[in-house]
Design a binder for these strands. Structure first.
Lengths: 142, 142
DNA sequence: TCGATTTATATAACATGTTAAATATTAACG
DNA sequence: CGTTAATATTTAACATGTTATATAAATCGA
């Protein structure tokens, strides 16, 4: 699958930097998502960072142990978690972000800004088109 | 990552069919690759199906247990495996292939043949551009 | 208010990806 | 030759994806 190879090629550029700071790709996505709002509920965080709830649950446990995030519960709904990034978490991001942005810039110049934009557009449209095409893909008669 | 979401959207169309026959996405890739030549060495198979050697090793063990593939060793090189698909394996493929092709056709018509071709081209070029850009992505001074 | 259903999150079980190390075999070199 | 380096494959250890199930809390209806 072309999508698979392209994604692998892209991620291989970012992994070394993340690995140097003992972060996985998914942990990085979660941390960065947490900088975009004061607090998140677990479900929101999973949607925003495209990570399944079971994985997110494990990731949060790991990040909490490293004190990169903190958790609370909502007053109004004792089921809901309030997840936020800590000062340490922000420091780590500040440490990594420049590297990450440099890699991204490398990719942009290597591939071309315009083509990258076109690619983004097509990918978004493909996902959108498939997702609302049919919520439950029809399993043909059998 | 847009690549991630697009891939997930695509695969969610194929997974139900595969799951109904107790196959994972990767096992399916391996089986199909095996139909394109008489025999494969493990390393070739890993490259062709974009699966890491450790994963492939586990997958081959599982597929062999189900008698969908068979293994031998090369005369000239006792390290090298000779992996080939069995009759049962071909039967399973014949059973699934029509469903798989129908899903693919659905995606093609939903998204548009021309746009799909454009997307393929961009993905291939992106992967190629990143892969020979630099074998070892330069880790900047730190 | 009680009980059934939904919602938010967590856990279990299994397969795969990633990294590193182990094993076996071949090739290369002194 | 024998020792070392390279190659093909496997295994180990850990993190994640996928599916199914469990737990807890909220909501809804009788």
């Amino acid at each position: 699958m072309a999508l698979l190879k392209a994604r692998e090629a892209v991620m291989s550029r970012f992994r070394p930097t993340l690995h140097a700071h003992d972060l996985t790709e998914q942990q990085w996505r979660v941390l960065r998502a947490l900088t975009t709002a004061e607090e998140f509920r677990a479900g929101e965080l999973a949607r925003v960072s495209s990570i399944s709830m079971p994985s997110l649950s494990r990731i949060l446990r790991a990040l909490e142990k490293r004190a990169l995030i903190q958790r609370g519960v909502e007053d109004k709904d004792l089921r809901a978690a309030q997840i936020s990034i800590t000062a340490s978490g922000r420091e780590l991001i500040a440490l990594i972000a420049p590297h990450s942005e440099r890699r991204y810039a490398e990719i942009t110049t290597a591939f071309g800004e315009d083509r990258l934009a076109t690619l983004y557009g097509l990918l978004d449209e493909l996902a959108a088109c498939l997702n609302d095409g049919a919520e439950a893909p029809p399993e043909d008669e059998e």
